[in-house]
């Protein structure tokens, strides 16, 4: 109990719970502020002409009550794990989410890992080779990564890599001829590896690679640029010169003195980048026919399927809260000053 990191963690956790409640309020309010009538979107033309059916639809979905009452009812159900029923699929929203969230998590997670590994490595190389040819090349490449719109890149990649060059397998998470691995985590790559089905694993990785790379292009560019400037700033610090004066090998100075200090801004950006990865999934999933919450959110929104839209908002909000919590905890792990002062 006395350990400062533990106290730090407890405080951050309490803040996260408050944040989560705030997320429910905001998603609920925003969803209901959207102009448009759910009845009009979900009932057919003929049914709309019949006031009795419209009234019944409103009563069934609680739409006839005042908003605050709707919110409290919603929260009450939420606490019991009930997210309502999708007006499109006529299934509980949590069942829909359980099906689609792992797919998105796999896609966004792979893109995040890819961005961190490649982006940080590129950034460090660019900083160490400042103003040389490698640096110039990486700076232009990363600028391109940040500037190119994701949907355009996705279309190009799909056309060239899949259609023209036949280098990537088709869209979706697996070839239609393959049976998905037994469900444990919902991540095909992990589940296949756990079941020892290496052909399925290879198929899942193959299907994942191109959309993940397209999705990661922006964040790789972003992380390269931030890592480069963070490392350059740290390289000029007195404590790096002092570490060199101790005669430590260059590798040790870089990994233990320079990177540790540079990690703080890198983690900040990585946390924010995860947000843009999640929003990027909407486009990438549509183009690569990836059955994730991006597609689900898009379909639900265009059909004004309010329970589904709120469910997606809630999941994305919760992911944000968790990512922020992770970022905060990492600050504390890396920097002892954060641990003792906050």
């Amino acid at each position: 109990m006395k350990h400062p990191l533990f106290r730090f963690l407890a405080r951050r956790l309490a803040v996260s719970v408050l944040l989560a409640v705030g997320v429910t309020l905001i998603t609920f309010t925003l969803t209901n502020l959207v102009p448009g009538d759910p009845a009009a979107a979900n009932l057919g033309q003929q049914a709309l002409g019949n006031p009795a059916i419209v009234k019944q639809f409103r009563e069934q979905n609680g739409l006839d009550k005042p908003l605050p009452v709707q919110y409290v009812t919603y929260l009450g159900h939420l606490v019991q794990g009930d997210l309502g029923e999708s007006q499109q699929s006529h299934r509980p929203v949590d069942a829909d989410l359980a099906e689609f969230v792992p797919a998105t998590f796999e896609l966004a997670g792979a893109a995040l890992v890819l961005s961190l590994v490649v982006g940080v490595a590129f950034g460090v190389i660019a900083a160490l080779r400042r103003d040389r040819l490698v640096d110039q090349f990486l700076r232009v490449t990363s600028l391109a990564g940040v500037s190119v719109p994701t949907f355009w890149l996705a279309l190009l990649a799909f056309y060239f890599v899949f259609y023209r060059l036949r280098l990537a397998p088709g869209s979706g998470r697996l070839a239609p001829t393959m049976t998905p691995p037994p469900h444990v985590t919902g991540l095909y790559t992990v589940d296949a590896a756990m079941a020892g089905q290496w052909d399925v694993f290879a198929g899942a990785v193959g299907h994942l690679a191109l959309p993940a790379l397209v999705l990661a292009a922006y964040t790789i560019g972003l992380l390269t640029r931030f890592t480069r400037s963070a490392v350059l700033e740290v390289l000029g610090q007195d404590y790096v010169r002092a570490a060199r004066a101790k005669g430590l090998p260059g590798r040790v100075v870089l990994l233990q003195y320079v990177l540790r200090a540079a990690l703080v801004p890198i983690i900040t950006v990585a946390g924010l980048a995860f947000g843009s990865l999640l929003s990027g999934t909407v486009l990438v999933e549509s183009i690569f026919a990836w059955p994730g919450i991006g597609q689900y959110a898009y379909k639900s929104a265009t059909n004004l399927d309010l329970p589904a839209v709120m469910g997606v908002g809630l999941v994305v909000g919760a992911i944000y809260v968790v990512v922020n919590l992770i970022v905060d905890v990492l600050y504390g792990v890396i920097d002892p000053r954060v641990r003792s002062t906050t």
């Binding site: 007195d238 404590y239 002092a242 003195y257 200090a261 890396i334 920097d335 002892p336 000053r337």
Partner: peptide
Amino acid sequence: FQDQSTSLHPM
């Protein structure tokens, strides 16, 4: 070094 506030690694 001159400045003890910057010549030790803060982390």
